[in-house]
Structure formats: structure tokens, C-alpha cells
Amino acid sequence: MHSGAYGASLAGGAFDFWSFLKQPQTILRFLSWVFSIVVFGTITSKGYTNTTRVEPNNHCMFNDNDHACSFSVAIGVLGFLACVAFLVLDAHFPNISNATDRKRIVTGDLAFSSVWAFLWFICFCVLANQWSKTDSSTVLADAARAIITFSFFSTITWALLFYFAYRRYREGVSEFNQDYTDPAHDRTTPYPHSSSQYGNSDAPTGYQQSPFSNNQGNTGDYQPPAY
């Protein structure tokens, strides 16, 4: 795809669905979307258990640390919603003609991807640390390992999304200048001199000699008619 502004062609072209699906950003967002579903879906369905059957409330499977489960669910849900929002923006991105709006979208993608890659890494470290302190059954172990594994995969996908967003930000505007000024309204540009087009450099542009100038200089040679 020919680059026009921030990694996308200039506005006005038809939307190519298959080319959109083949884009690295689209694939990574879809994978991040799936990984988020696995993390918060598994924790919601299997992450809270009650092995003692004495207390009425369930506890987080990761060393009974409810904060670990709540943090992971929050990161997964917000990441899921962000993937959907950025997929819609990516699909609409080539139809945006304003370079400033494109820059805002790319900057938002850059900031969000960097923050979420960091949060997923924190989530992975917390879950791995809490699970190493947990003594549970094999069924819980399979679910916990899946959550930890996909948290690590989410860190990788969001880091790659940050890389592609940064590359689009560096590309910026390649085919037109946002600071373009119409020469007709640019008062800092001097008018070109056109003295080379005329023999007299002191004469103003477009000056023409009066057809009566020669007669004004020869008034002394006037002869009245003889009757």
C-alpha cells in the first residue's frame, strides 16, 4: 500500500477488506483480543474457588490473592475493549483526510500500546509469583498455567503493537506538508523582479511610455499653417 500519511494512503480510496485483514496491526489486535478473552474468561469461570467449604465466599486461585485476580480481569476486559476500538479506527483510518486527526489516532495507539504492554508484563509477573506460592489441584494448575501463559503472550503482542504504532508515528506525513502556505497569502515571500523583461530596470513593471511624450519635447518646431 502506497504510504501517504502515517502509514496509510491518502483519503479517497476504496476500502480493501482482505488487505486490511493481512495487515500486521490487524493480526496482532485480533490475537490480543483472543488472549484477553482467555485471561479474563478463565479467571471469571475457574479463577475463584472455595476448597475449605467453611467460608461462604470464594477466593482467588492464585494464593487466595483476590487483588491478583481482579487486576488480571480488569486488564483483560479493558484490553479487549481497546482492541475492538482500535480495529474500528484502523478500518476507518484510510478515509481520514486530516493529517492532524491521523496523528492523534496514531499517538493514542502508541501511548495505549506501551502502557498495556507494561501492565500485561506486570500481570504476568504477579500471577507467576502468586502461583508459585499456591498449593492446588491439577485441574486448577491447568487453568492457572493457561492464564499465566496467555498473559505472557499478551505482553508480546502489545509490545509489537507499540512497535508498529511507533513506526507509523515516525513515518508521519510523507507526500504532503501540513505547514503548506499559499504563496498568494504569504507576505514573507518577496515579489520577483521583472527588470530583465524590460530594457529600463528603473521603470516599474508593466510601464508603457506615453504616445505623446515625443510631441511634448518638440513644441518649439511647430509651424502655424499659412493662409
Rank of each mutant, 00 (worst) to 15 (best):
Y207R: 07
F112N: 11
D109A: 14
P24E: 11
L81M: 10
Y166Q: 12
F112E: 05
K133A: 09
I37M: 09
L81H: 04
Y222N: 10
C60K: 02
S174I: 15
A74N: 09
V173D: 03
Q216V: 09
A146L: 12
D186E: 04
V173K: 11
G4D: 09
S114C: 09
S174D: 05
E171S: 06
G4E: 08
H185A: 06
T219S: 11
A143T: 13
N65F: 04
Y48M: 12
D221E: 09
T44P: 00
Q208I: 05
T188G: 01
A117T: 00
F17Q: 13
V39L: 05
T44K: 08
S3Q: 12
T44F: 07
R168H: 13
G4A: 11
F17Y: 13
F71N: 14
G79T: 03
S196M: 11
Q25T: 14
V38A: 08
Y198M: 05
N214Q: 12
D16P: 01
G13L: 06
R104P: 00
P192W: 13
L10D: 12
G7F: 05
D179C: 00
T205F: 14
P204T: 03
V38P: 00
F124W: 12
L87V: 06
T100C: 04
F124Q: 02
G76T: 03
T107L: 11
A99T: 14
H185R: 10
